[in-house]
Simulated assay, not measured.
Amino acid sequence: MMNTTIKYVMVLCLFLLIPSCATIKKEAPDMTLPPTGFMTPVSHAPTPTNIMRKEADLEFLDVYDPWDAMNRNIYSFNAQFDRAIYIPAVNIYTTVLPKPVRKGVTNAVNNLNEVNVILNSSLQGRGEKVLRSFYRLLLNSTFGILGIMDVADDWGIKRVVTSTADTLGVWGMGPGPYVVLPLFGPSSVRDSAGLAGDSALLWVQMNYVYDILGVKEGRTLIGAGEATIRGLNLRSKVPFRYYQTGSPFEYDLVRFLYSTKRELDIEKQ
């Protein structure tokens, strides 16, 4: 019984180091505007909204969004979840764990995410990025104590940020329709497929470590705990808060910023 408990603790600690898919799939886009204190709901009536937007000359915010009504409903659900559950949980997380500890968690997650980066950089034909990520993984896993410290960055070896969605973009796949995913937020058909690919890789990593440690039971519970910590750590670094932009066109603005950022991400790969 004691040996089994020790194994579970070891696996949970290791999975604190396994990369977030994220959303989780990648670095969260910076869609932050200064809070104004004025909170306004996102409109769910497309026709009146379109009329208002034309009057305000905001057509430049248009993005291919054939599932507009559904996406707006999911956006509102995410806002309610964020306000009622996610943010309170993040506040507890940031209170319990001091900033240096959270920084160590972020570094360790980024370190094992180098495996994902190496794979996708290879598929993109980016040899220099493959070598850079390999050196980072080697240095941070040794001198950085399993990635808790980012010594590679201190030595001028900067982290490469890429994902399966970026690989699909480099291969010529267009973004497709805009979509808002429950809990995950802004995405597209291509980015959703990329998220599925990153999730599959994470699943393989998790089961590989389970097999090494000989853990047969409790995998679901340990995985849920690891995913929760990754999610809280990611959300704590994103200052965006729903319905605090002071604009009735917040949904349109977030959609535009996300889509534009993803276009630039693909161009930089």
Score class of each variant (00 low, 15 high):
S141G: 15
V151K: 09
L97G: 13
P98I: 06
I148L: 12
V109G: 11
T106L: 14
G169E: 03
N111S: 12
K99V: 10
S122M: 04
N116G: 10
V96Y: 13
Y135L: 15
V151Y: 09
Y178D: 07
S163A: 05
V130A: 05
V109E: 09
R159F: 03
T162A: 05
D154R: 14
L168R: 02
L138Y: 15
L146W: 15
G104A: 11
D166F: 08
A108P: 02
R159V: 01
G174H: 10
P175W: 03
Y178L: 12
S121P: 00
R136D: 01
S133M: 04
N120H: 11
Y178F: 15
R102F: 11
I157C: 03
L137R: 03
L119Q: 01
F143L: 15
R136Q: 01
L112K: 06
P175L: 07
V117P: 04
L112M: 14
N113G: 15
I145L: 15
V160Q: 10
L146C: 10
G176H: 02
M173I: 01
R159T: 03
N113E: 14
T106R: 12
G147C: 09
Y178Q: 06
D153V: 04
K103P: 03
V115S: 11
G156H: 08
I148A: 14
G144E: 08
V160Y: 05
G172W: 03
G176K: 02
G176V: 02
P175H: 08
V130I: 09
A165V: 05
